[in-house]
Design a protein around this nucleic acid. Structure first.
Ligand code: MN
Ligand code: MN
Ligand code: ZN
Ligand code: ZN
Lengths: 137, 137
DNA sequence: GCCTCATTTTGTAATATTTACAATCTGATA
DNA sequence: TATCAGATTGTAAATATTACAAAATGAGGC
């Protein structure tokens, strides 16, 4: 837990048990969880946890560049503490969101078509490797 | 209007005035409107229009590959009748969603990292050309 | 032209995620 | 230990989307 304490301190985020737990969960579960996923899991050990705290903490971590949101549909946002640039695939078979490590040409260009590009997000839809192996399709 | 009548017929979508109007609006306004935008605009000429019809029609057009949804945030979905592949930039200054015509290497590969890729969406955030010219930043 | 019936439209209600807010709590500091 | 700004909590509000059933529509057959 020392690791997460240090991360929060380095970013000037006041350390609280809730923030430590949320950060730890995100760092140890690279499954792109939703706010509900985080809340549901951490509430087991801390029954007084509030969903508002989860949302507040998520926002705080995003403001400090420690977290990105992944939005495949308006239904819900998913979150990822892996900041180094990568794309994402939503598997139509198993529903998982999977990291795609690719060399994306647009991440390097600061200007494209005259527009300034600050962030690049690649969202793919398809069928993941595991599901292809199992089911065919 | 003959054009949209033909499009619906070709795709086996039953022709109705509402569907014609929605299709026409999308084809003549490449501003990536929201469902609310479409509803609000078309209700002027057809006061009995229902928002459910807008959503139903959007879904139908998407099912037939005539429309794609653009999701930058969970707040709302935006829609685009331009199907030929292109990426999108959300300008943090003016809020517009702008088409980015680029050669994207991932659209050609059917398999990437062992996963099957069916759809590729490129979402950029930044500042558009017009806003750069005006405001600096 | 009229009937029929499947489909569509409409209006309302339900769902669910996210945000707003105020009271309470906490923890660092002096 | 007293203070107090900031964090947490619970509840309520906002809002986009979906579900549903009744009414309307429109193409095809007579
Ligand atoms: Mn990821
Ligand atoms: Mn577009
Ligand atoms: Zn899969
Ligand atoms: Zn702009």
């Amino acid at each position: 837990m020392e690791k997460y304490l240090q991360i929060l301190r380095e970013h000037g985020i006041k350390v609280t048990p809730q923030r430590l737990e949320i950060l730890r969960f995100l760092d140890t579960h690279h499954t792109h969880p939703s706010a509900e996923d985080i809340f549901h899991e951490l509430k087991k050990r801390n029954p007084s946890l509030s969903k508002t705290t989860v949302y507040n903490t998520i926002q705080s971590l995003m403001d400090h560049g420690l977290l990105i949101s992944i939005v495949f549909s308006t239904h819900e946002a998913r979150f990822d503490s892996v900041i180094n640039h990568h794309h994402h695939l939503l598997c139509s078979e198993c529903g998982k969101i999977i990291d795609i490590e690719v060399e994306c040409p647009f991440t390097k260009e600061k200007i494209t078509g005259g527009h300034r590009i600050d962030e690049v997000h690649g969202y793919f839809r398809g069928v993941c490797k595991d599901c292809l192996r199992k089911g065919g399709k």
